[in-house]
Design a protein around this nucleic acid. Sequence first.
DNA 1: CCGTATCCCCAGCGATACTG
DNA 2: CAGTATCGCTGGGGATACGG
Lengths: 118, 118
Amino acid sequence: MARKYGTDPICSLDYAFQRIGGKYKGRILWHLHIRDVLRYGELRKILDDITPKMLTQSLRELEEDMLIHREVYLEVPPKVEYSLTKVGKELVPFLHHLKDWGAKQIRKEKLKPMKVQS
Amino acid sequence: MARKYGTDPICSLDYAFQRIGGKYKGRILWHLHIRDVLRYGELRKILDDITPKMLTQSLRELEEDMLIHREVYLEVPPKVEYSLTKVGKELVPFLHHLKDWGAKQIRKEKLKPMKVQS
DNA sequence: CCGTATCCCCAGCGATACTG
DNA sequence: CAGTATCGCTGGGGATACGG
């Protein structure tokens, strides 16, 4: 394999986007920040638009990039917990900022449709 | 059309990622921050791995989302300048920190290949 | 409960040529 | 100079079924 990402990163910004880009990674990191520790099934419920395949895939890549930690408990029934690593936690302020920015834009959009009026 | 993005955003974080995600948008915003104003041809040179199609497409979407401003000068030869809007500038701290984070990870990776040694 | 294994689709991206 | 127009590809993502 040797190529996890489509292309080599052009710069550090590119590098960062390759790691936290994708459809679900931002939200996964965010919820792990909010709840601190989450089990596989909990993540699946929270991100209720995700398939098991995509969830596993996203989690594996985040783990490989050292952004999250995976703790397996050898029990019956099995139990697996995910949490942010130190490196992953360093991204929290930025996710927060980005989230606030997004919320602000959404609020603005909601006020716009008034454009078409007499 | 009516659907510029594949899916409706699930939350504000999702919303934000839909706007600045994609392969080039982050870098475009970043360079507009650094250089303040850039012409089409200048952007094309700086992002030297981009095709005119992708550059135009990215710029149009960023403009539609009010993150950048497009100023056309009716001259011969034609001249078009791009710059960040107020809303776009609000993303700069985020991009800055994300870039620093990326740079830090890259530095770490460079020290790792020592793993395979006697 | 926590995942794999398959198969498939499509939107994002790329290459190239052309134009006001 | 600053873009369009066309066509083609490919890998990220989706649906569904199954396994330890």
